[in-house]
């Protein structure tokens, strides 16, 4: 029941963090199914993973638009039909929205909530039932430290990730004792294409390889909530402690 997953599906696999995580898993012989929207980029990823594993790897790819919520149950069904032994998932898709555009129109705001929260929650609803019925599986979802408290600079993204975190909390509670592990992964600032327009100076920034090592470790140890890297836990603890009358004056 506590064995490490043998076949993991990665959603949003072409992202920088997911790619690094896939390489680490592959190096230890985990079979992978990578899911993403762009077939060309998926093929570039599977070529890379295949060569790295020296031809010994089991890597399959599946193209899907994860923002199309109605198609997600069908996607999961076809995945488990092809790979009945799937016992791990990593949900790594998402986008960092332009906060100003989210403030301007409800459509943009809703679209970002859809990509960053609703898509994962729809998928999780199907996956959770499936894993629960089989009494096994590890579910890892990439959230964000931004979901721990709303800030003016990215509260739409933060609200989506915060909703996702509470959803995962409940799911973990529900699945406790069923043999299914639910892991909330909360990276801080990571140097990836998603954050390239931010000012990335300072000690708080980390490389995607480091975050990937943390994800693999969290799966091994079946942790509940993981901050990546670890120092974000005390940082966010302190940020949550600031009283709202003070916090609202801060420009964060």
């Amino acid at each position: 029941m506590s064995a490490a997953p043998r076949r993991i599906a990665i959603f949003g696999a072409t992202s920088r963090i997911a790619t690094e995580t896939a390489r680490l898993w592959l190096a230890r012989g985990v079979a992978l199914v990578v899911v993403g929207r762009n077939p060309e980029r998926l093929r570039m990823l599977t070529d890379d993973l295949g060569i790295r594993a020296g031809g010994l790897a089991e890597v399959d790819a599946m193209t899907a638009d994860l923002a199309d919520l109605d198609a997600l149950p069908g996607l999961w069904n076809s995945l488990t039909e092809r790979f009945p032994d799937l016992d791990g998932v990593l949900l790594a898709h998402g986008s960092l929205p332009d906060q100003a555009r989210c403030e301007a129109t409800p459509e943009t705001m809703l679209q970002e909530i859809r990509v960053n929260a609703l898509s994962a929650m729809s998928l999780l609803t199907v996956i959770a039932n499936d894993f629960e019925a089989r009494h096994r599986g590890v579910i890892g979802v990439i959230g964000s430290v931004a979901g721990d408290r709303g800030r003016r600079s990215n509260y739409v993204y933060g609200a989506a990730k915060g909703m996702l975190a509470i959803f995962l909390q409940g799911l973990r509670n529900r699945l406790h004792g069923s043999g299914v592990t639910v892991i909330t992964l909360k990276p801080g600032f990571v140097m990836t294409p998603m954050t390239q327009d931010l000012d990335r100076d300072g000690l708080l920034w980390s490389r995607p390889e480091r975050v990937a090592r943390g994800i693999v470790r969290a799966f091994d140890r079946r942790r509940d909530v993981v901050y990546l890297p670890w120092f974000w836990r005390p940082v966010l603890w302190a940020i949550r402690l600031i009283p709202e009358p003070v916090f609202k004056r801060l420009s964060l």
Binding site: R16, M44, L45, D47, I51, T192, P193
Partner: peptide, 12 residues
Amino acid sequence: LLTRGMDRLIAF
């Protein structure tokens, strides 16, 4: 152009 993310093997 930060190229570290363009780090795939293509063929061997």
